[in-house]
Design a binder for these strands. Structure first.
Lengths: 167, 167
DNA sequence: TTGAACTTTCAGTAATTATTGAAAGATAAA
DNA sequence: TTTATCTTTCAATAATTACTGAAAGTTCAA
């Protein structure tokens, strides 16, 4: 396959994957573009490559920076801003996991924890089932949480190494 | 907190979480409802509880069945269909992981594998960077894949137990 | 200061995704 | 069969989400 075609396909694939996992497709495409760029890209570069507006490019870049997946890079003697992506995939995975944990899992966890307190003494079948399920869910989400924490601290080889060894 | 309020909050929380992870919010709400139901529910029950149309209820139930998270249950002497959810959370997690792997991860993996073949001999910096990144991504996604496979086969306590022990 | 070069914002609009509800389809008891 | 009961489909519509582009904001060299 020719590079230009492969590049387009990678951008499409990464964008699609993002979309399926609740991440704005364009944001994932901008990320894809920066992941394979051998040097920092300007907003103009990104607008042109992906054929998107300045506003859209700006918004998605800002969001990628919020996720700590991309950072601004200043070139001395140039007023234009450039952007670079974190290129270590393990680090990328960690940051995504950390961010999603913070934004989505933790709030859900807190909510479930409160729900566990519901009228624990009731004899009603619905209520009993509810309490039981909240217990199960809290327990599960706690374990997930700890797993993500482990991942955040660990090195890639250690993490997968240990995991795969015990399979 | 009173049961009725807690129930509504659980449905909202589960629905929101689903939405954030690329799963139709209503589908997640139907799932939530079935998770805490002490007995099978009919389409009517679900329509009423969530205030949704028959078509919507039917569609989302079918999809939950495709995901193997819900099954139909027939009550002898009753023509109406009832639905029950898998209640073991570890099993639920396994099925979701398995399904998402099959639907989303595997196709992405295959696509990346092809992209790795791109003009490997080029001296162009862009192409070199691209090949490098495709290699990293393939390698990472392979490890993820194996981790999910391990999860699919393992028992909850063994899986998390081993994981948490090594933390 | 001024103004050229660049970035950010956001109201309006477009695109996508989800929902409704009525009609068609299926099933089984009479 | 026929008919009553229940399920499925899908075109129309609503709701949500994403995008555009022009105007406002910022920064800095002259």
């Amino acid at each position: 396959m020719k590079y230009k075609e492969a590049k387009q396909q990678f951008i499409q694939t990464w964008g699609k994957l993002g979309g399926e996992w609740g991440i704005n497709r364009t944001m994932a495409q901008v990320h894809a573009l920066l992941l394979i760029a051998p040097k920092p890209l300007s907003t103009e570069d990104i607008m042109q490559e992906l054929q998107i507006s300045r506003g859209n490019a700006n918004m998605n870049l800002r969001e990628l920076i919020n996720w700590a997946l991309v950072s601004k890079e200043l070139v001395p003697g140039d007023r234009m801003e450039y952007f670079v992506a974190e290129k270590n995939i393990w680090e990328v995975a960690r940051r995504i996991a950390g961010e999603r944990k913070k934004r989505e899992i933790e709030p859900a966890k807190q909510a479930l924890l409160k729900l566990k307190e519901t009228e624990a003494d009731s004899k009603n079948a619905e209520v009993k089932e509810f309490i039981k399920m909240m217990g199960q869910l809290s327990n599960f989400i706690n374990k997930m949480d700890k797993t993500v924490d482990a991942m955040m601290k660990a090195e890639e080889n250690w993490f997968f190494g240990t995991l795969i060894k015990i399979m």
